[in-house]
Design a protein around this nucleic acid. Structure first.
Length: 258
DNA sequence: TTGATTGTTACCGG
DNA sequence: TCCGGTAACAATCA
């Protein structure tokens, strides 16, 4: 479910729900018995997203660290609390709402040192004001790896997932198999700027939207080529390839690799 | 029941 | 050291 926009949207929403309040934190038994006692009913002082990682900071300098992975979800509901549905691993209860987090791949409590280490290994985050695009430009420019791989590497650029990868490369007419070092500075700037703009739209609408064209007043589709057969620009056939286990789509004509 | 899926990490070989 | 490939793990739905 989540690319960067989902996590930053959650951080924005949860800031209003939890910061400044004593938050009840509970977790069930099993793999994700995180020992929530140490943060339970502590005051939440911040909620922040770093790439696809979500951190809830508490007064005792500990943080709840969540990564939703491929299947994780966050459900937000109004109080009173209801019985959890599905594989809920953590529940946070605030003054007016509660959230259930199901299926995360990471769900743990970090101290300050571990938190710094985590933040340190995440690349520039398209949705953060403190992001430094120069780091992205330099890293890609000296890499032999495919741009399709690099865009999904969260230590190179944080926030892009499989759908934005396909859509941004198509919008900028770059073949996913181009090597990082084959791209010039203006292409990299365009990729950065476009991805950033699209992710911001994603946060605003809580949805991935990369196609803004309307026929009459109706949006034909919010995506251009992801899982599609035909290129909306040239009407050509969309190809599908596997890049490190994930499906990437591209238009042979609009995104030449030569 | 099977396959697919908006993700990440560890490990190995080249 | 970099890069590609593979496996493991997560939960849900068609």
């Amino acid at each position: 479910m989540p690319e960067g926009h989902t996590i930053h949207r959650a951080a924005r929403d949860h800031r209003k729900l939890f910061v400044g309040f004593n938050v009840a934190v509970s977790s069930p038994q099993g793999r994700f018995n995180i020992g929530a006692k140490s943060i339970n009913k502590q005051q939440c002082v911040a909620v922040e997203a770093f790439g696809k990682h979500l951190l809830y900071d508490f007064t005792n300098n500990q943080s709840l660290h969540i990564h939703l992975g491929l299947f994780g979800r966050i459900k937000q509901r109004k109080l009173p609390v209801e019985e959890a549905k599905g594989e809920v691993r953590v529940r946070l209860v605030g003054k007016t709402h509660f959230i259930d987090i199901s299926g995360p791949t990471i769900c743990e409590i970090l101290n300050e040192q571990a938190k710094s280490k985590l933040i340190g290994r995440i690349g520039p985050d398209l949705l953060r004001k403190d992001a430094d695009p120069i780091k992205f430009f330099e890293r890609v420019s000296r890499s032999r790896a495919k741009i399709g791989t690099l865009l999904m590497d969260q230590s190179v650029i944080a926030g892009i997932g499989n759908i934005y990868r396909t859509e941004v490369l198509w919008r900028q007419c770059v073949h996913p198999n181009k090597r990082g070092q084959e791209l010039d500075r203006s292409q990299l700037e365009n990729l950065w700027n476009d991805a950033q703009a699209l992710l911001e739209v994603g946060v605003k609408h809580n949805k991935i939207i990369t196609n803004f064209k309307k026929v009459g007043s109706v949006n034909t589709s919010s995506l251009n080529i992801y899982k599609k057969k035909k290129c909306p620009r040239c009407q050509g056939v969309i190809s599908k390839i596997d890049i490190s286990g994930r499906s990437a789509y591209f238009c042979d004509f609009c995104q030449p690799n030569s």
